[in-house]
Design a protein around this nucleic acid. Structure first.
Lengths: 329, 329
DNA sequence: CCTAAATGTGTAATCGATTACATGCACATG
DNA sequence: CATGTGCATGTAATCGATTACACATTTAGG
């Protein structure tokens, strides 16, 4: 492999000069520069990033830690992040925790060992070991989707989004509303959305029958199963609407409802959260909330870049959202 | 930052011994090993990958070059790749060309500079400069989706998949079949699928009216627009079926058809390729071809890993597929 | 014409690991 | 008892860049 030394030799200069020419730093005569560039061109020389980053402590790489690589939400966020970063010449190092808390921590450390300049975490849970690790590695850090104490966080306004959806259902006349959530180890999706739902129901003096509550695991299948369970448990007092905290679970639930011959929204109205592609094209189209994930990703990346430049930035950013009313209610 | 030297000093050994302890290479006494590990634990020491990879020429990172980060197909492939790689302790460095041929080449070189151990390219086109660059960088290389001469390639059986779909439509009695393809700079999606379609039509002595042919750009919108164009151009001789080479374009086309009040499949049958999530949940559900993208990704990764171990492997692998018959035909 | 500043280039240390080679010791073997 | 072998550790070179510092030459200003 050609190295900077080879180039230096061929161009009859020291490697210092080659380095300066390539990085536009310091003084280099026009003559030397030309000679160097020509040889770089001819040889196809590519500088070693490992050597560079060993010396400079920078890599031009941002690490991303995802709970799942295969959901639309994460894809959109990653896409947004990449858009912002690529413009500035940064690359993305991807890791997927498969929802494993231990891996989350492991990957933070691994990314540090790889000298990433910053880390973006799509967090799904909050715990002390995680926070401690983030402190320890001492790398510009950013969390999307969960508020991590002491860490710059971009959070969706889960509470109000869920509250708006619930209110909307109530205004449409629904009084018996079923709910499919997720574990509240996930404070945002599991905690806040359910809290908002319960708060709004209470505000309107509407009872929440615990038979109408299900807990899924984000998957379409779990939506299907939980809907089945809810209907079984409420034979004599069927809910007239369902609030699923993710589109995928809403879709699974609709699948079951259709199978059983229920009409949506006449027999049961359904809402989700996420504004997935599918929500738009299925029949009936699904009422949902758009979290502008691409934009969240873009914002996250540019905030992180600002952090890298040592700009002081706030700790918490609340993202906007938008209700999308469609045919399922 | 703590380095191997700090650890060595604290443990009263040379850094050689620390290195050996950490990498389980050579002899290290139980006593020394324990002392070292304890200190590593306490200090939270993380070895620098830059230094390591500068010395060893390996990074434990595989570069991936995608045409788009945001489609289901690529996501599924990446997911599969990651599954295989993560097991072996490799990470993924992601780049997105946004369908720009020049970036494809740029990123290959960039990935080399980052000392990736191998590169997986989801190619969308084949050209000499690309092939030349791949030769030049001399890194274990693998292509998915296009056959690149001289490069280990995993290819979908586009020809037969498209032929099967066309035959199926013909057996259902369709004789006037419209077609929405993409540019044939993409030899697989653009070239082979259209070729198969035309071949099968010819075999069955069925005419292909050029008014029934559209060219989209993979997007849902383009499917919508091309369908509109086709119907406008064939007022007096409307096709009874549509073959779109991707699910997304099929979905766009269905969107337009529904808007215009056509019944699917009664008035016009529609098929796509890709087995997207959406194809399953929309109404009517879309007949399509499943390319098992996850598996393709997994296979690609494990083939690449075998290459890294210097195993000799074949140049071309043809992937299997499966027709999924649904309600849209 | 003298001095200070600007320009151009090189020397050598440095980043943090790995690893070939050398050394020392304990023990078994013939 | 001489010697070969396994174990444990250390010394120092090396990977390929960047950069502080020194030095030489040119240019500008008074």
């Amino acid at each position: 492999m050609t190295t900077i030394n080879d180039i230096a030799q061929m161009a009859n200069v020291s490697r210092t000069t080659v380095s300066r020419a390539l990085n536009n730093s310091g003084y280099v005569s026009e003559d030397a520069r030309k000679r160097i560039m020509k040889i770089v061109e001819e040889t196809g020389y590519i500088p070693s990033q490992s050597a560079k980053s060993l010396r400079t402590k920078r890599s031009g790489v941002i690490g991303i830690i995802l709970p799942r690589l295969s959901t639309e939400t994460t894809t959109r966020v990653v896409n947004g992040i990449n858009e912002s970063l690529a413009k500035e010449g940064f690359q993305i190092l991807l890791t997927d925790t498969e929802l494993d808390k231990q891996k989350e921590i492991e990957y933070i450390r691994l990314l540090k060992s790889r000298h990433v300049d910053g880390i973006i975490l799509l967090a799904t849970n909050v715990n002390d070991e995680l926070l401690k690790t983030i402190q320890e590695v001492d790398i510009p850090f950013l969390s999307i989707g969960q508020e991590l104490p002491g860490v710059t966080s971009l959070v969706y306004d889960d509470y109000h989004a869920a509250a708006d959806l619930t209110n909307m259902l109530i205004h449409k006349g629904h009084e018996k509303i079923a709910f499919i959530g997720v574990t509240n180890e996930d404070p945002s999706v599991g905690g806040k959305r359910e809290q908002a739902f319960r708060d709004i129901m209470k505000e309107n003096d509407l009872p929440v029958d615990e038979n109408w509550i299900g807990e899924g695991d984000f998957s379409i299948d779990s939506g299907y199963e939980q809907m089945k369970k809810i209907l079984k448990n409420s034979k004599d007092n069927r809910p007239t609407a369902l609030f699923a905290v993710t589109d995928r679970m809403a879709i699974g639930a609709m699948e079951y409802l259709k199978e059983q011959g229920y009409k949506i929204p006449e027999d049961i109205a359904v809402v989700g959260i996420g504004a997935s592609m599918m929500s738009k094209y299925m029949t009936p189209s699904l009422t949902t909330v758009d979290y502008f994930n691409d934009e969240a990703g873009r914002n996250a990346a540019s905030l992180l870049l600002r952090k890298l430049k040592n700009e002081e930035i706030e700790k918490k950013f609340e993202l906007s959202y938008r209700l999308i009313l469609r045919d399922s209610v």
